[in-house]
């Protein structure tokens, strides 16, 4: 039996990788992938807590998180396509019509 700490440490590590990715990358699709990585890191935490406590509440939340991530992917990729049509690039440095 592997202790829960390892799962939590992996989850925290993945969450941080995703967070740093969002902050440093400039490509909208890569940023979006990093956000998905963050959400899935959280899912890992939820599942391991759920098995630790032996109740299913956490796993139910994981299902909803997966559904939300799928809906977000649909909307997000559509928005990124709209941006690509306007700018012919998905680099967020070019998304600068409005500032301050």
């Amino acid at each position: 039996m592997i202790s829960i700490d390892w799962f939590l440490a992996l989850s925290a590590l993945l969450f941080c990788v995703g967070m740093i990715g969002v902050l440093v990358r400039k490509n909208a699709i890569v940023i979006f992938m990093c956000v998905e990585l963050m959400l899935n890191a959280v899912n890992l935490s939820l599942v391991s807590f759920s098995s630790h406590y032996g109740n299913v509440d956490g796993q139910i939340l994981v299902f909803f998180a997966l559904a939300v991530a799928a809906a977000e992917a649909v909307v997000g990729l559509a928005i990124i396509i709209a941006i690509f049509r306007n700018n012919l690039s998905v680099d967020i440095n070019n998304v600068n019509l409005m500032r301050w």
Partner: peptide, 14 residues
């Protein structure tokens, strides 16, 4: 509008 949408989406998802 597309720009507003992208900014809202990325920061909201974050």
């Amino acid at each position: 509008g597309a720009e507003a949408s992208l900014k809202y989406f990325l920061l909201g998802a974050f």
